[in-house]
Simulated assay, not measured.
Amino acid sequence: MKTILIAAQKGGAGKTTLARNLSVAASLDGQKVLCLDLDPQGSLRAWWEGREVDTPAMLERDPAPHALKATLDAARAQFDLCIIDTPPAHPEWLNEPLEAADLVLIPVRPSPDDLRAVGATIAAVNDAKVPFVFALSQTPRARITEEAARVLAQHGRVAPVNIAQRVAYAETGATGQGVSETTDQKAGAEIAAVWDYVKGILDG
C-alpha cells in the first residue's frame, strides 16, 4: 500500500479538495483507496459521509496521530492506496505522519501570499526526507499561474496539470461526489491527469 499525505500550512490551499477528488479518481482507476482525515475540522470525513457509494473507504474513526503507523500497517492487506488529509498548520505531531508517507502533495494557490507561505511546508517535508510534488490549485488563466509554476519549480517537482478554479469543486464538496463523477468533463480530465502523474511517481 502506498501512502499520499496532502500538506500545506496555508489555509485555503485546497488540501481537502485535492484529497477527495484524488481519492475518487484513484478509486475509479481500480485502486482500493482508504482516506484518513487528520484535520480536526473534519471536512474530508463530512464529505465522505455525504457519499452514496462506499468507495473510497474511511474507517469508523480516524486514528490519533500517534496511532497512525499501526493503522497504516493494519490497512496494508486490504488497500492499495491511503490518502491522508492534514490541518492547515504544522503541529509537532504532523512530523510522524510526514515520515510515514511515500509522497507528499503540496497544493499551492498562485498568489504571492501562498508562495511566501509555502517555504515552511517545504522545510518540514525536507526534514522528513519524503518525496514531494507541488500541485497548483484554484488557478486562473493568467500570467500569475505560469509565474507561480516557475517559482515552485526551483524547489521541487510541479504537477504538469493545474487544478483550475471551477464551480464543480465547490459543488461536489456539498454533494459527496468527486468531479470525476459529474458532467464537468474538464474538471474530471484534469483530476484524472493529476492522478496519472502521481501514480507514475508512486509506481516509480
Rank of each mutant, 00 (worst) to 15 (best):
L59A: 14
W47T: 04
V24C: 07
L44H: 05
R51L: 11
Q41H: 12
K15W: 01
L18Y: 04
V53T: 14
P40C: 02
R20T: 14
T16N: 12
L28F: 09
E60Q: 10
D29R: 10
A13I: 10
A26G: 06
S27T: 15
R45M: 10
L59F: 08
L28R: 12
A19S: 14
G50D: 15
T55R: 13
Q41G: 05
E49Y: 12
V53K: 13
D37V: 05
A19R: 01
L34K: 02
S23I: 04
L28Y: 04
P56Y: 09
T55K: 14
E60W: 11
P40Y: 03
E52R: 07
A46F: 15
W48Q: 09
G42C: 03
N21M: 03
G50L: 14
E52K: 14
A19C: 06
S43V: 06
L44A: 00
D39N: 11
D29A: 15
A26H: 09
P40V: 05
L36F: 08
W48C: 03
T16V: 10
V53S: 13
A46E: 12
G14F: 08
R61Y: 13
E60Y: 10
N21Q: 01
E49G: 06
R45H: 13
A57Y: 12
T17K: 04
C35Q: 12
